[in-house]
């Protein structure tokens, strides 16, 4: 399989704190890749580096074989590389339908398209995707009035609306009711198979990530600790030590 995201020797430090040191990894096109690691191990920093949220100190990041480490956030998003946030972010004062409609891909939109209204197919797509995440009944409620879990589902649906090539999910199941988690895993898998979106997922819930990912990278202290299939990671003594704090 081809690598859609290639990270080579990326380092990023905040002042004296080295959040990422010489990290290299690749995300396969069309697959689901996981990223795990103890708290503070640099997972979100790496995500932020990939989507252009901050400049990296050294190294290279390629998306679809093109260097993106110098591009601003919006430009990377318009290329089809999207992220969701650990602290869920939705447009609180707008209703779910508006949240979805504004998430339509802007890479296909010229400036003057902004002065048009949405067509019927946009509304149908919105309804279909809200139905997909189970928020259809609440679609005219303000997004800010939804529960945290529902906001998380809405954010996921918004990301799908954007038709990304690859989607970076930062802890998609954190704060979600355990009974809903199975449904969410199922939806993530379907987004991958039905819509063909490459997923790169940070997750703390081991059961979720072992079920979901085909390949897992583990970070600790800002460095790449291990990589492999879920079975290899589960049996890797270094990973177990990192999580239990032997380091």
């Amino acid at each position: 399989m081809n690598a859609i995201i290639e990270v080579r020797d990326v380092s990023k430090s905040y002042g004296g704190v080295a959040a990422n040191t010489g990290i290299s990894l690749s995300v396969d096109e069309g697959g689901i890749t996981g990223l795990i690691g103890p708290n503070g191990s640099g997972k979100t920093t790496l995500f932020n580096s990939i989507v252009g949220y901050h400049p990296i100190d050294s190294g290279s990041i390629k998306f679809e074989s093109k260097e993106i480490s110098k591009l601003p956030v919006q430009a990377i998003a318009r290329r089809g590389l999207l992220r969701t946030f650990q602290q869920t972010r939705i447009y609180g004062k707008m209703n779910c339908v508006q949240n979805m409609l504004i998430s339509l891909p802007h890479r296909k939109m010229s400036f003057f398209d902004a002065f048009s209204r949405h067509g019927q197919q946009d509304y149908e797509r919105t309804d279909g995707l809200l139905d997909f995440v189970g928020l259809y009944e609440k679609r005219f409620l303000r997004a800010g009035s939804l529960s945290f879990g529902q906001q998380k589902l809405l954010e996921f649906a918004m990301a799908l609306m954007n038709e990304p090539t690859a989607l970076l999910l930062d802890e998609p199941t954190a704060g979600i009711n355990p009974t809903l988690i199975n449904g969410l895993i199922d939806r993530l898998k379907r987004a991958n198979t039905e819509f063909g979106i490459t997923l790169f997922v940070i997750e703390h819930n081991m059961r979720v990530i072992m079920n979901l990912a085909e390949k897992i990278y583990c970070l600790a202290h800002g460095q790449l600790l291990a990589e492999g299939t879920p079975e290899q990671i589960q049996n890797d003594q270094r990973v177990i030590d990192a999580y239990l704090g032997v380091h």
Partner: peptide, 16 residues
Amino acid sequence: NAIRDDEEKAEAMGLH
């Protein structure tokens, strides 16, 4: 409206 509610999110979604 999206810029009002969360400008950082709007940037992350690729809005100009």
